[in-house]
Amino acid sequence: MLSNAHNVRYSVVIPVYNAAEYIVEALSSLNNQVVGNYSVDVILVNDGSTDNIIEVVEKFRSDFEMPVELISQDNQGVSVARNTGLSVANGDYVLFLDADDTLSSDFFFNITREICGSDKNINLLITSYRKVNRNTIDYFINKNIENDEEVKYRFLNGSLYCNMCTFIFKRKCIENIGLRFTSNVKFGEDIEFYAKYLFSQNDIAMVPDSFFNYHFRFNSAMNAKPGVKRFDAIEALFRVEQFLISHNVDKNLIDHFDRVYLPSRIERVFCQIVRDGTNFNEFIGLFLDAKIENILINNDVPALSVAIKCKLITYSPRFLFFLLKLIDFIRNNSWTNLNEKTKVH
């Protein structure tokens, strides 16, 4: 527990690549935080941008109340950029924010209140988030959970709302386990990082009333159609599995990871690759690996539809492939017809 007189220090690491259009909004959300017993320093890592991001940041920085460090490097990807920021962070806690996302104005105030008011020496805080579309806002609220083990099981069962920016990590704990983002990975590097951290820590706190705002943009990398590159996410989860084993995580948690979390994620990646428009022969060999087959066959996924698709990936992948294609075709055509009918002439 930290005393109420303790000034909690936060480091916010923001990787930026051609984000001049959005970065001021992100920085403004940091600059407009409710005053509290905390301090925030911002580390911007310019990952080889070709736009005017440096000019925009320099112009904004003169009116910024928090320290802003701007580091420029050759383009090496988001993982390396985050690692660069992490290497110079000196806050008690670290938060990773994307350049086009924002925080609620009371984000750090609520987190600090939880840290200072807890009888635990908190190693991880998990907040809620809002998905902001053009015309709608969807709320994903993580309710209070007192038991660390329950937090971990909820993560494995898919009932914990997770995003890289909903996790606030204690910096010393990151260093103690030597954790860094895996480079040269397009998908899954964020889940790999926070899953390894989550399962290696206790003294977890939920902060339901602090919100990270995920701004959904149709042109973002997360909304692209990368096809087989999505398989990176499965390989990332295999690295998590090895981490759990090597760090002597509870065997029941590892078993749940293998029988529930892994098969559900593999099924999800399979479906995403299909919906990206990938040719069947381009990727099916990836899923015919003996280890993946064993995971899918022996799944204990509670959602029946997911459990069935896990079996189909193994026993009849071609059938599932064309079934998903058919479902998408029907959905897309139904949506097109609906739009045509609702047009004003």
Rank of each mutant, 00 (worst) to 15 (best):
C310E: 00
Q33T: 08
T314L: 10
K325H: 09
T112I: 10
N37C: 09
R265E: 12
V42G: 00
V151Q: 04
N332K: 12
L86M: 11
F216K: 09
R113H: 14
L30I: 01
D41P: 07
F199N: 05
V16E: 09
E175K: 14
K143Q: 12
N248Y: 14
S62Q: 07
N37V: 14
K172F: 01
S183A: 11
F270Y: 07
F322Q: 13
T314P: 03
N299D: 04
S128Q: 04
F193E: 14
D232I: 01
R275E: 15
Y315E: 11
N252L: 14
S334L: 07
F167Y: 15
V34F: 03
S159P: 14
C173Q: 06
N121M: 07
F155H: 03
L323C: 13
I141H: 01
Y129L: 14
N281R: 11
S29A: 02
A19N: 05
K225A: 00
E65T: 05
F181Q: 04
G85L: 02
P302G: 15
N144H: 11
F319I: 11
S183W: 06
P15H: 01
Y197T: 11
L244T: 04
F155M: 10
R180Q: 06
D250E: 10
I308N: 14
G285H: 09
N133K: 10
G178K: 00
N279V: 15
E241D: 03
Y194K: 10
R180T: 09
S28F: 10
F231A: 08
E149A: 05
L27C: 00
F64E: 04
Y315K: 08
Q76P: 06
S264H: 03
M1P: 13
C173H: 06
G158P: 13
N176H: 11
D119F: 08
I234M: 11
S72P: 04
I168W: 01
D74C: 03
F167W: 10
F257E: 08
I54E: 08
F167R: 12
S210T: 12
G285I: 04
F216N: 13
Y153N: 04
